[in-house]
């Protein structure tokens, strides 16, 4: 892992939402710039989580305010029963991508419960980004943009509609979240010294690890 320290910050992201809304596909589109059924096949659904580390370089087109930032992204399983397991990985997330399917109202209706989890299990400054995925399937739309926009405003979320298939807005969603986190650091609303800020900062003595604590011990009867 040469050059592992070559960054200013590490931001931890989680991607959450119902099964089949395209969470893994969004991630795949962002990392590989493609998302076909075939390319996704081996990981088309993930029981647990895949931590994925990605660099945003100042020189590239993908950069956040000229900073060297690494994103550590945790894709989670959507099936309801796995939430008992995935919940313990929410802790210390700086950004949460909350995804629903614009063609399936049930996935939109469940947003509140996902949002509650995200709010309860992360810190108050965690940036939560609402994503209405599958915008390429306009004909099958079941949730209007206005309705979702209103939900986002009421709950203080940033909102975008994306298409993991065509790639529309996907990059923006990931980068906007990072920019928002960076802004929160800059204006001091995100305290890097607080436990579970979800951000690791590199200092001259090496890294100043702040966030990554073990997930909560899973209880047992």
């Amino acid at each position: 892992m040469a050059g592992a320290y070559n960054y200013t910050y590490i931001f931890k992201y989680i991607i959450i939402g119902d099964m089949g809304v395209g969470k893994s596909c969004l991630l795949h589109q962002f990392t590989e710039q493609k998302c076909t059924r075939r390319s996704l096949s081996p990981h088309s659904w993930l029981i647990a989580l895949t931590p994925l580390v990605l660099s945003l370089e100042p020189a590239s087109s993908r950069h956040v305010c000229g900073q060297k930032i690494k994103l550590q992204i945790w894709d989670t399983a959507g099936q309801e029963r796995f939430r008992a397991v995935t919940r313990s990985y929410y802790r210390g997330a700086a950004g949460a991508l909350l995804v629903y399917d614009i063609c399936r109202r049930s996935t939109y209706n469940h947003l509140q419960s996902w949002l509650n989890d995200a709010r309860n299990l992360t810190n108050p400054n965690t940036v939560i980004f609402l994503i209405g995925n599958k915008s390429d399937l306009e004909a099958q739309r079941d949730v209007t943009t206005e309705e979702a926009k209103q939900f986002a405003d009421e709950n203080n979320l940033i909102f975008l509609e994306t298409s993991a298939k065509t790639g529309a807005n996907v990059e923006d969603a990931f980068l906007e979240t990072a920019k928002q986190i960076y802004q929160n650091i800059q204006d001091g609303s995100l305290d890097l010294n607080a436990a579970e800020s979800g951000v690791q900062q590199k200092s001259q003595s090496g890294s100043v690890p702040l966030s990554e604590k073990a997930p909560g011990k899973s209880g047992c009867c």
């Binding site: 029981i47 647990a48 796995f82 397991v85 313990s88 604590k213 073990a214 997930p215 011990k217 899973s218």
Partner: peptide
């Protein structure tokens, strides 16, 4: 701090 749930 990795819980055994990694092997789920």
């Amino acid at each position: 701090g990795v819980e055994p749930t990694f092997a789920v």
